[in-house]
């Protein structure tokens, strides 16, 4: 296609970026399970069906305590949903899952049926990063699904750049670190050096089950079970992989760019 054809084509198609967050979120497919909702009150006393069926041991039911589902370890296979007799664990189809603290991802206890969503950064950081957040991506030995879904955010439809969020080549140019993958031993040094190379103030985002807690590789001797043990993380986005909408929601929540229509708690 010539330049002329390209320009004409662009003019014909017009602006194809979605309206979100100024408009409704795009429709999610049926397969999208979304966040899990855990109502420990509905559990049977002696049932531990979900515990045994979870591939990453994300669900624990210690004696005398309510069931606890660590969404950070969850790889969203939904086996627990299928196997639960009392429908204590359900999929909410909610795309919003990003949190600031690791503890906020443990669901089950009263008042903690669903994730407590991320709060925005404090005012000083929001002033610095609110309209321009440059991220350096570190892909630490994962399967690359999280990277692929992050990459989608750069396309015309999603257009991450309109929020001032961009991925840069050098950590020296970056404000934050976006980590994916369970952080193998080979990548430990690289991750630490990248974090140190970031100028302060800096933020760290752990994206995906692997980066938060090791994902399917949890417990493997060649991995560090995610980035939390190596660098201080400011935003956790669970998922395996998280839907681009989830990732976007998490980033915007961090920067307080969502608009109050969607705020919760």
């Amino acid at each position: 296609m010539s330049v002329h054809d390209t320009l004409l084509n662009r003019l014909k198609r017009g602006c194809e970026t979605m309206a979100y967050p100024k408009g409704p979120a795009p429709a999610l497919p049926d397969r999208h399970g979304g966040a899990l909702k855990v109502e420990a009150a509905k559990c049977d006393a002696s049932c531990s069906a979900c515990v045994t069926v979870c591939p990453t041991e994300a669900i624990a039911r210690p004696a005398g305590k309510p069931v606890a589902l660590d969404l950070g370890r969850c790889i969203f296979c939904a086996e627990c949903v299928t196997v639960c007799p009392t429908k204590a664990i359900t999929q909410s189809n909610d795309h919003r899952m990003a949190v600031r603290q690791r503890e906020d991802l443990v669901l089950g206890d009263t008042g903690k049926e669903q994730v407590r969503l991320a709060q925005a950064l404090d005012e000083k950081l929001r002033r610095l990063f609110g309209r321009s957040l440059k991220l350096r991506q570190v892909s630490a030995a994962g399967c690359n699904a999280c990277e692929a879904d992050t990459n989608v955010l750069g396309t015309i439809g999603w257009d991450l750049g309109r929020f001032g969020i961009q991925f840069v080549a050098s950590p020296r140019h970056a404000d934050g670190l976006l980590i994916t993958g369970p952080v193998s031993k080979n990548m430990e040094l690289a991750l630490k050096k990248t974090y140190i190379a970031l100028p302060e103030p800096r933020i760290v985002i752990a994206l995906g089950a692997c980066a938060i807690a090791g994902g399917p590789f949890i417990g493997h001797p060649q991995h560090h079970n995610g980035a939390s043990g190596l660098v201080p993380v400011d935003l956790f986005i669970p998922g395996c992989p998280p839907h681009p909408l989830t990732i976007l929601d998490g980033l915007l929540r961090l920067l307080d760019r969502l608009g109050e229509s969607d705020a919760r708690r």
């Binding site: 020296r172 040094l189 690289a190 140190i196 100028p199 302060e200």
Partner: peptide, 14 residues
């Protein structure tokens, strides 16, 4: 401004 002296960025190599 705070200055910090750090090694040259080497792409995470040794």
């Amino acid at each position: 401004a705070r200055t910090r002296i750090a090694p040259t960025w080497d792409c995470g190599q040794r």
